[in-house]
Design a protein around this nucleic acid. Structure first.
Lengths: 230, 230
DNA sequence: CAAAGTATAATTGTCGACAATTCAATCGTT
DNA sequence: AACGATTGAATTGTCGACAATTATACTTTG
């Protein structure tokens, strides 16, 4: 049960709720990537006014989940390999820095909490079975914790508020549950150790390598896919 | 004459124009940082409907220039030292990576163009006079060029579309024209050289140091300010 | 038959009004 | 006099309708 909204600002207005609903629909692929969004259609579907819907669409645009052109309309972003790799580049830079800052700014309690989480993941049946649960849920939990541990509001906003919605969208729509589970777990463990040692420099390097490894894994997969297809 | 909108999507709708107007007003401090925004007031001032104003406000929120709370309203972000330092941390990470990618992805023409710009800055009267023109305008031009040179749309969006509005706001409101002009110029020159050599690793390191130097310069200034005030 | 122009239909942008919530001032109580 | 509750005013959220722009289908022409 990973929190999919670590900033936990509960939806109070109806636009908030519709935003949440459409967000999940897009991330889960129920609204197809690249498809055009019909304002009258969606408004009727959710039984709200167009004004309220547009309010929700504006927030989706903030997450880079939809793109709007003036006098033309909104489209769901489409998932491309290039787009995915671009995100990994940004993640490598930002999460690396977040990890460095986390090593500096996290409280001892926060670190202990993160260690507990890792221990829990270690014991989880899914990891023992080598299944992809860890990849899909535990991995995000870990990364969220590190990001929040940076105590840098800008980093938190960009990563948790914007980029990670896209990350989850790609994960689901590209079906990314690679067999990196046990290895990624070891890398997480090393990163936490660096944070625990308050070694920001090492923590950043390890996190960057961790993310770069994921990216390269995907690149390899894609290359393989292309070679077999050709 | 630095472009203050490198993504150059011209305002077509009235909400776009109002967004531009309010953006400049906030960045220039004509609308005070931290002040509350009155929707009826601003709507009347710009002679538009509240719906159109809210559309503009949503885009300002995307730039992190205003913050909204449900059923309460919008406030202009306030400029704090902590906030400024947070931005520098993000810039160090993102622009460092952008610089690395620029060394890989920039075309020869783009590099030549950037070299021309630097040469032009070298000859500019303002730099010779040791005045702060370079800091305020040429510096931004340089950083924009590098960011765009990354050819990474995510990086471009985050940096040019969001963060740099805040950067300009802080520069103006904190009156940041430090005597780092000639030194910064030399650093820019070295960075371009690394990009020209297609040395992404070095380019990233140099850019990170360049930004970190600015941050430390500010921290020093603040420390000095505090010591004299006490 | 293809291509361009035009007219129609659909969609987006903008507006003003009403409902719901929050803020402010007044009044009453201890 | 200070604190809390209540009432009124102001602000935000939501709605439906109209205007402006764009997309579509049809007609006309070469």
């Amino acid at each position: 049960m990973a929190l999919d909204n670590p900033t936990l600002q509960k939806p109070v207005t109806t636009a908030d709720k519709v935003f949440d609903a459409i967000l999940h629909a897009i991330v889960d692929g129920k609204i197809a990537a690249g498809s055009k969004i019909s304002e009258p259609g969606l408004a009727k579907q959710y039984e709200i006014s167009r004004s309220t819907l547009r309010e929700a669409l504006n927030r989706l645009e903030k997450c880079h989940l939809i793109e709007r052109k003036a006098n033309v309309g909104s489209r769901v972003v489409d998932c491309t390999i290039e787009g995915l790799l671009e995100i990994y580049v940004v993640r490598e830079a930002l999460e690396g820095m977040a990890c460095r800052e986390a090593a500096i700014n996290m409280s001892d309690d926060e670190i202990a909490e993160m260690q507990d989480m890792l221990a829990q993941h270690a014991n989880s049946q899914a990891l023992i079975d080598g299944i992809s649960y860890y990849q899909e849920e535990g991995d995000l939990d870990f990364h969220y914790k590190v990001i929040l541990g940076s105590h840098n509001q800008q980093l938190i906003n960009i990563l948790c508020g914007q980029l990670y919605h896209l990350v989850r969208m790609y994960r689901i729509q590209f079906g990314m549950h690679s067999p990196r589970a046990t290895r990624a777990f070891q890398e997480h463990s090393n990163i936490i150790q660096a944070i625990c040692d308050r070694d920001g420099e090492l923590a950043e390097i390890l996190m960057r390598r961790h993310i770069a490894a994921s990216r390269k894994n995907i690149e390899k997969k894609i290359a393989l896919q292309n070679s077999t297809a050709a």
